[in-house]
Design a protein around this nucleic acid. Sequence first.
DNA 1: CTGTATCCCGCAAGATACTG
DNA 2: CAGTATCTTGCGGGATACAG
Lengths: 111, 111
Amino acid sequence: MVGIVFSRWTTPILWVLNEHGRHRFVELERRITTITPKVLTERLRQLERDGLVVRTYHPEVPPRVEYEISELGRSLAPLFAALGEWSINLGKVEQARQDYDAREPVRSRRT
Amino acid sequence: MVGIVFSRWTTPILWVLNEHGRHRFVELERRITTITPKVLTERLRQLERDGLVVRTYHPEVPPRVEYEISELGRSLAPLFAALGEWSINLGKVEQARQDYDAREPVRSRRT
DNA sequence: CTGTATCCCGCAAGATACTG
DNA sequence: CAGTATCTTGCGGGATACAG
């Protein structure tokens, strides 16, 4: 259920469409540099089906397709804003991991 | 990166610890009824390592262990509040799916 | 009570190549 | 340009049994 919005790739896609408006397929590919076309297609289809993204097909040569965030997708804005603010704390998470990994493997379980 | 906080089980666990305070292992198990002990252990370890949850071991017989949300974990509260508010829209997502699935499988791709 | 140990499974995701 | 087709992999998660 939380996976509707938050997964490895749905969050970046929604974020970009929310912040920077309408995008063509290749534009999304360039902005989210490490995603592959296969995965981008799969996630876009899911988001379209869930009503969070609107896909517009322009029957031209060469073909042109545009993706934009829907009204329902826009309602996620406060959530993304909160996420953006919290991301300041990512460094603390990284620090916590290093501290945890530096502790004695066995004793740490009991104390 | 979003998986630090949002996954199938980390979100419910953090939510419970944030809303209802300190819990023992078995209390968490009961509150999150469908989770298995193995998975609960795995997610708690991850959250502990990430510094979002604090584990306290009481060397008694029988052993007692308590989990509570950390200071860093508390900083997620606004995010959870935003998530809670957005969840009103889950019905719209369900409706969008039904509409999508009801459309003609082939023509819908081109128009 | 608080976990571990195995074994298995599904599915998102990655690599690579190809098409209308 | 905007995808599809295949194949493979990694990892979270489920079932079940067992241990300190």
